[in-house]
Each structure stands twice: as C-alpha cells, then as structure tokens.
Design a protein around this nucleic acid. Structure first.
Lengths: 243, 243
DNA sequence: CGTCGTCTTGACCAAAGTCAACGCACGTGG
DNA sequence: CCACGTGCGTTGACTTTGGTCAAGACGACG
C-alpha cells in the first residue's frame, strides 16, 4: 500500500515538481492504513497528539460545536490532505475532526514529519505552502459567509469542493459526486436545514445539481461557477494535473 | 531604528525563546522604515511582490472587494505582524491590504527571509507556526460569522483584537484603545453600518466600550469576554509576556 | 462658517430561521 | 414478507434578525 503516499506527492506537486531525493524520503515512509467508520471523530477539540493523519480515502470535515449545540463546519478534506498539520507545531487542536464517509487514514508520527523537513528543507517549505493555501481557503470562507447570499454561497462552496477534488484527480470529468448530506452543507454554509433544502431545490431546478441518496452530483460545473461567482485563484493550484 | 525588529522577535517568542544565533540573524537585518498614510493600499489583489512587509506601527486590515462594491475585511494586523508572508511562498496575493491608521512598515526582501530560514531552520518553523495561528484566527472568524449573533460577534471581535494587542505589549492595562470606525467594524463583522451602530450602543449602555472620536475604547475586558463568549485558546498564545 | 465624514434615529422591508407536520426510503427484526 | 423505526428530505405558516432608505445631528478641520 506504499503507493498511497502518491496522493500526498501529487498534492505537493501542485506547487512544484519534487526532486528525486524528496520523493525518496516520502516513499520510504511506512504507511499503516487504518479504517474508520462514518461519523467517528478522528480528533477532538483540545486534544494533543503525536501523529499527523494523512487522509487516503473518504471525506472529512473540521468543525466546532457551540454551547447551544449548533455547529460550524470550517473545512472539508479530501484524499491527499494532511488533517492536523497544526498539531505538529501548535500542540492543542482547537476543533473537532469527523469522518463524513468510511475512511482510510495513515497516521504519520510527528517525528517522521520533523525528519522530512530536517533532511529535505524543501519539503518543509512545501508543507508550509500547504498551510498557506489552507489559510487562503479559510479567508475565502470568511468572504463566503460574510458577503454572499444563501444561493450564491452554496454554489460557491460546491465549486470549491469540486475544484479541490479535481486537483487530486478525483473528479476527472465534468460531473462530480460529493458524499454530503443537506445537514452537513447547512453546517458549512451556516444556513438552516430548511433553507439549504430550498437552495438545493433551486439548484436542481436549474439543472446544476442532482440528489442521489446520500450524495450530491454536480451536473454543470460552469453553471455552478457562474451561480457562485467562483474564481479558483485563491486555491493557488497550478494547471490541472494529468489524470 | 534597529530596535524595531524587537517587535517581530517578541511576536515569535510567543512560541518559544529564541536562541542567541536566531536573535542575531534577525537583529542584523537592515530596517528601512517607510511611512504610509491612512487609507492607502499597501498591496492589491493579484499583486506579486519581492518583499514582505513588517508592520512596525499602526493598524492594517486585509479585505476583499466584491463586484457590487461591498467589502469583507478578513483580518486586522498590529505591530510585529508580517503582512504578506503568503507572497513569499504563494506568489499572487488574493486580497487587498489597507492602512487603517498612519503606518510605519519595513519592507524585508524575500531573499532575506529565505536566508533566515535557510541558516536558521528554527526560524522557518516559527514563521510557519505564525501562519498556522493565522489560519486558526481565520477559522475563528468563520465560526464568528457563521454562528454568532450581531452582538456576540462584535464583542468577540473586540476581544480578539484586545488579546492580540496585549500579546505584543500594546494594551498593558485593562483598557485598550482601537483605532477603528464603525464602518470598519461593519465590514469585518459583515453587519450594516446601521446595525453595528445599534450594537455599539448596546455595548456602551452596558459600560463595556466607549467611543472617542475615531477610536473605540474597551473599558471592561472581562465583560466583553463574557458578552462575546470569547475563549482565547485559538490564538495559541503563551502566558502574557512581561510588559 | 461651511463642508465632509461619521454617527444616529426611525420606519419599513426582506432574507433566512423556526416550528411542526408529513413523506419517503432503507434496514432490521418478528 | 411485512411492520416498524429511524434518519433524511420536504412543505407551509409564521417569526426574527438584521438590512435598507432617508433624514438629521455632530464634530473636526480647512
């Protein structure tokens, strides 16, 4: 299963080609695949840990629960993402991380990651770049929550998810299937379930999306892009990598 | 004016004590102080640059302007902050940066910063930590915009600003003066000016804040903390540094 | 003294939330 | 194989939070 580290390599190669040595360092990491059920929390608010989690398969969200039980999803993550890079340098986590689908993750000891960046400082820079992109995505969410209407906001979020899936080769054609429920979209857009439902109806009536069981299918990426005023520049992706 | 780099040092020492060599590297940087007027843009959306800006005095915000002219402020910055660290590794900026007060900034060439992190990898780690904290702050803004009411949201924002000023020794006592207008708070909280005005009135009526010309005085930090449900954990500050 | 930017107020409006009931599909166990 | 329960989606009626518009006050500064 060592091939799985390819996901991380592909993600980092969004920034620049890796050198032979850099690839070697990553490919030599023993990958210990763990399976996790839908709904399980991978990490809890306040937790310290000695490993980072590399997501190999499935989808995950980070969220914070308020005192009154409402919750705000802060980000979604896809295969190739390192879920809690912040635990490496910051210690305590300030949010929860939950499995939205059945998952495969690989815990990578902090010591291993520190080894990477010591022996190959270039890798450290790439990981730092990754956290800068993360920050850019959070900024975009601030704009999205602050300035866009329910309809535009939802479309924008769907575009972002599609663009990120495509970047790691998981949404090769125009369509794209997202394993999210209306409740999860509501928590991410900070709309009520009732209202996100009305928004999704509108998106469906325009032929932009389609509901299939517990998943949402994006039918018309350009239409969604237009509906959400989506400009992918903030994702700082290079050209779409070859499938 | 070389003493000014002390601000950055103090900021980084929020994470850990610097070694003698690390201090040396930073203290040897020639500081070229530039003065900037209120309202000027320091950086524009899409811009590339060859320098990072170290803020020495004054207050700054990052924002994005929408097509319809509304704008969303994404963050405020205080002395000691590096304003566009992302330009170092990501190239194109995805937002504007504006002076909210008269400013003193020091441009630091990218090459210089790259030199720091090459010769003292520990400094690179500290700067990376700084961007992780930045990201944590953005996440908190997502929660703030998504889940908190106008009143709570505003109080929370004020608490955050006070806590960050205090961390660099600029709000030593219980009170704290912020050079922000209602319009700027409105753009940051994504409330209308009219509504933020009503919120500020309520905060004033409870003795939590006071308006003095173009500045806002925080009178009762504990009261604000309570009003905003503020928990500073996400700022990942160590104990308050000695004044 | 006038002007400009900022703050303030009140009346009205609209986007999104809440509540409550219902439907629908799926899975499990009798 | 059907009955039931559970989780998710849907709908309509009503409410609330905060937005919009418009007018006026205040205060700093040339």
């Amino acid at each position: 299963m060592a091939a799985r580290i390819e996901l991380l390599i592909r993600k980092l190669e969004q920034f620049r080609r890796l050198s032979f040595d850099e690839r070697q360092v990553l490919e030599n990491v023993p990958i210990d695949v763990q399976k996790i059920d839908t709904g399980r929390d991978l990490r809890r608010d306040g937790q310290r840990s000695s490993h980072c989690l590399l997501l190999l398969d499935g989808m995950v969200c980070r969220y914070r629960t308020m005192q009154d039980g409402r919750r705000q999803i802060m980000s979604f993550h896809f295969p190739g993402d390192i879920l809690d890079l912040s635990s490496l340098l910051l210690g305590r986590l300030d949010h929860d991380i939950e499995a939205l689908t059945p998952l495969e993750v690989a815990p990578i000891p902090h010591a291993t990651v520190l080894g990477w960046i010591t022996h190959e400082p270039g890798l450290g820079r790439l990981l730092w770049q990754d956290t800068l992109v993360d920050a850019a995505v959070f900024r975009e969410w601030v704009v999205n929550l602050g300035q866009r209407s329910a309809y535009t906001r939802t479309a924008h979020l769907l575009c972002e998810m599609a663009a990120r899936l495509q970047a790691v080769g998981l949404a090769p054609d125009q369509t794209c299937t997202l394993p999210v429920t209306a409740a999860e979209l509501a928590d991410a857009t900070s709309l009520s379930i009732v209202h996100i439902n009305r928004v999704l109806q509108e998106l469906r009536s325009k032929g932009l999306v389609e509901a299939r069981g517990r998943t949402l299918v994006l039918l018309d990426r350009d239409g969604l892009r237009h509906a959400g005023g989506f400009d992918p520049g903030y994702l700082h992706q290079r050209a779409v990598p070859a499938a």
